[in-house]
């Protein structure tokens, strides 16, 4: 039988979307609470790792997934760079300039560009860690 036992599979169905949602919560509230892009990305990749562990790697269409995660990693680091360069041109000659209006302290949409940086860094970390995990799994398959 593929994957782990049936109890683990059923509980994975219950928990995996909640884990992903919790990672999104950590990322989007990164400027209000501790955490932010890196920690949230590590939790988001936990959801994918849980599916690979419980169902085997066939459940995610493995080879296509690796190309997708690698591409999205490059794209999100490019977006971070573009945001920083826009700050360079808009106000003063300062790299990583915060040019959006900063709202009230404590609101969800405030702090200018910091939430955008958080979101793209979260995507970057999740995609990179997923690429590493899948690369390790494939390497183990080929070495046998």
């Amino acid at each position: 039988m593929n994957g782990m036992s049936r109890i683990v599979k059923k509980v994975t169905q219950l928990l995996v979307s909640i884990i992903f949602m919790y990672g999104v919560y950590i990322v989007t509230h990164g400027h209000l609470t501790p955490g932010g892009g890196f920690a949230g990305g590590a939790i988001i990749v936990g959801a994918f790792a849980l599916i690979i562990l419980a169902y085997g790697s066939d459940a995610l269409k493995l080879h296509k997934e690796e190309a997708g995660s690698s591409a999205s990693e490059s794209l999100s680091i490019l977006m971070v760079l573009i945001l920083a360069v826009i700050g360079f041109f808009v106000g003063g000659m300062v790299f990583f300039n915060n040019y959006l209006p900063t709202g009230v302290v404590g609101e969800l949409i405030s702090a200018g560009t910091v939430p955008l940086y958080n979101i793209f860094i979260g995507m970057e970390v999740a995609a990179a860690l997923l690429t590493i995990f899948i690369a390790l799994v494939i390497f183990k398959e080929e070495s046998k």
Binding site: T12, Q13, V16, S17, F20, M21, V24, Y25, T28, A47, I51
Partner: peptide, 12 residues
């Protein structure tokens, strides 16, 4: 966020 999660993990 819920739409994104549903699109990714709805089949499970």
């Amino acid at each position: 966020a819920a739409l994104l999660t549903t699109a990714l993990f709805g089949k499970f």
